[in-house]
Design a protein around this nucleic acid. Structure first.
Length: 287
DNA sequence: GGACAGGAAGTCC
DNA sequence: GGACTTCCTGTC
């Protein structure tokens, strides 16, 4: 991939097969992307506001070269070789299998390396919830508790709140839509404020990471795997949610061994999740 | 039309 | 196995 740097604009020569903003935006891993116009998004992450737009053969990121190097290159996972893993998966899967269809449908999705704290809280909010509502609650928390980052086209945008900021507003969390998950959020804030370092989990084995995260009140195996995959760089984490379990029941007779995708099972999981939710491959249109 | 059940990237007790 | 916030959907 070739990168062109101009003042406050980075151009990546890359195709939607390798990097698709739209697919990522719809893939359910991030809750702070908003569509400004077709193939143009405003992205909030790491206390930054980024505008990104996609064309047939390139993507423009409106940021400094410094921010690209320090934040966005890692955020968009640009140093990970997706084609290599996809080829490996295709070589061991039967043609026409669910996984192969899912990969073909989902090419271009990347696993974002999001901020661990933000990911921990947003996935606590995800339990027994749906994506539009999770997005709404996250928006409420940022607007009410977070720092103002700046404005774009007349609208103000806010940073994801720190643990201290969330705890400052603990009495209002329920009203902001957090609901019964309030106690989980408060406990997570306290644990982080008392010195627990999420970043150190980047350097531990995935199994150990999932174990440590599961000790948080309100975090079980599903959310622990999400945090490991979406923010700590553990590509072998494999979150099993209702959608994945449904796929396994419907297409794999209730058993699925993700270990055959050594080191990148999380990628396959994300393709399956996206394919199941976005495509119309099911016989749901009898007319 | 409006009530109502069912479900939503789960986890705790 | 039931409860949990709240909202959106489909059904009658």
């Amino acid at each position: 991939m070739i990168v062109n740097c101009m003042k406050d604009k980075i151009t990546l020569l890359i195709t939607p097969q390798e990097f698709s903003l739209k697919s990522i935006a719809e893939s359910g891993q991030c809750f702070r992307w908003s569509e400004l116009s077709p193939n143009k998004y405003l992205i909030l992450a790491y206390n930054r506001l980024l505008v990104a737009e996609q064309y047939d053969n390139y993507i423009n990121l409106y940021c400094s070269e410094e921010d690209y190097d320090n934040i966005w290159r890692s955020y968009f996972d640009l140093d990970y070789d997706y084609d290599n893993r996809i080829e490996r998966a295709l070589s061991i899967e039967d043609k026409g299998s669910y996984v192969v269809s899912a990969i073909e449908f989902s090419r271009g999705i990347r696993i974002l390396n999001q901020d661990p704290w933000e990911t921990l809280i947003t996935f606590i909010l995800s339990q027994q919830n749906n994506i539009p509502r999770i997005t709404q609650i996250v928006e409420n928390l940022c607007r009410y508790c977070g720092d103002l980052l700046g404005d774009y086209e007349g609208r103000d945008y806010y940073a994801f709140p720190t643990a201290e900021q969330l705890l400052d507003h603990y009495t209002e969390l329920k009203d902001l839509g957090v609901g019964f998950r309030e106690k989980y959020v408060i406990e997570a804030c306290k644990k982080v404020i008392s010195g627990y370092d999420l970043d150190q989990l980047k350097h531990k084995p995935t199994e150990e990471v999932v174990g440590e995260l599961s000790e948080f009140y309100g975090i079980g195996p599903k959310i622990a795997n999400c945090v490991a995959l979406f923010s700590l760089g553990h590509k072998d984490a494999f979150p099993r949610d209702v959608w994945i379990n449904r796929i396994i029941d419907n297409y794999y007779g209730g058993e699925f061994n993700e270990l055959k995708f050594t080191g990148y099972a999380g990628l396959i999981q994300q393709y399956m999740f996206y394919y199941e939710r976005r495509s119309n491959h099911q016989d749901n249109d009898p007319s």
